[in-house]
Design a protein around this nucleic acid. Sequence first.
DNA 1: TCAAAATTTTGAATGACATTCAAAATGATC
DNA 2: GATCATTTTGAATGTCATTCAAAATTTTGA
Lengths: 205, 205
Amino acid sequence: MARGQARGTVRRRLERPREQVLEAAMEAIAEYGPAEMTMAELARRVGTSGGHVLYYFGSKDRILLETLRWSEEKHVPGRAALLAAGGSAMDRLPAFVELYLPEGAADPRWLLWVHVWGRTLAAPELRDTQAELDLAWHRDLVALLEQGARGGEFAPADLPGFSVRLRAMLDGFSTQIVIGVPGVTREGSLAHAMDYARQALGRPG
Amino acid sequence: MARGQARGTVRRRLERPREQVLEAAMEAIAEYGPAEMTMAELARRVGTSGGHVLYYFGSKDRILLETLRWSEEKHVPGRAALLAAGGSAMDRLPAFVELYLPEGAADPRWLLWVHVWGRTLAAPELRDTQAELDLAWHRDLVALLEQGARGGEFAPADLPGFSVRLRAMLDGFSTQIVIGVPGVTREGSLAHAMDYARQALGRPG
DNA sequence: TCAAAATTTTGAATGACATTCAAAATGATC
DNA sequence: GATCATTTTGAATGTCATTCAAAATTTTGA
């Protein structure tokens, strides 16, 4: 996974340069958006030079991709807790969806997703990481659903298929939320998603 | 709608400059993608100067937005025919979905959608047109569904709500198709969408 | 038909950027 | 502590969208 950034070498000036840069990138993205975040500004924030940031990460695309990964990783514990919590899966599903959706318009994590989508054809090396991050959500959603199925909460169904469909729907809503389409909210999107989920997974009887 | 481009003035050099530019833009986007299409290249294609294209359209954002509109307009007749065709709405729904989805990876219409999403926060003037184009799909989908409901094909339900959910799902699939996520295809996405539709609109009885 | 007025068209700046790179600084190794 | 490897810098480079003043062309009104 790592690529030479962390192979045992000791750092000189910057403490945890990777962390620092990604954190600064996230802040800059929250302020300006991914396209408007410049190497110079990012360098200024971590107290180094633009050239150095690029020496370290290789390209702006890679910085943004690593920032997306870093931002996605923050959700892992929350999802794990949700999976471990026990109880009704259907009752936990809204919390899962809430983790998935953007916090609101201009949520930096989702700004990154949309930005990275737009860069993927030109920079196909972005694809693997996206697939990997997506798979993490898929796995955990399917795991949650399987808990529900095992517990008899809903009829045995094509759970992975449902996960694919639900996440596609959530991607659509998330896109609209993050770019600020008027009238599309986190709450409304959650309601839509749960409407679909209840219909698709409805009680066995 | 028009803004001074077409208020009765006679054109000089270029015949139908708007059409020509948008057509050329579409071709360039199909070849390079929206971000990589340069003003210089676009100008070359229509035999004018980069400065002129911008004099005419104001900004690259506006060109891309107008190109998206132009590209969307091509779907209007197809949708209208579908609505006028009569017969089972559920049977016509797949054709609607096929119109909605990208033709495949790198479909220029969908490259434009994704690109415009990414520009929307920085250029909020893009929002109205997006909403307008989206509304056209929504209206026609609801109209098709209402035909089905009137014909007793499915139980009376929240048709507009279903349209919102289905199109969110289709947006999610379309994004993945257009950026070339491996394994996500037009056919699979159609099947997913119809799976949802049948479940949500299933027979009254 | 012609001259002023209006519009279009050009192409050369401008200013922002990501990226590259050679040189300088710093740290590791023996 | 001298050599080697790595990191860091900051000044080019090259690519763009965008701007703008000047030139070309068309329209208008007599």
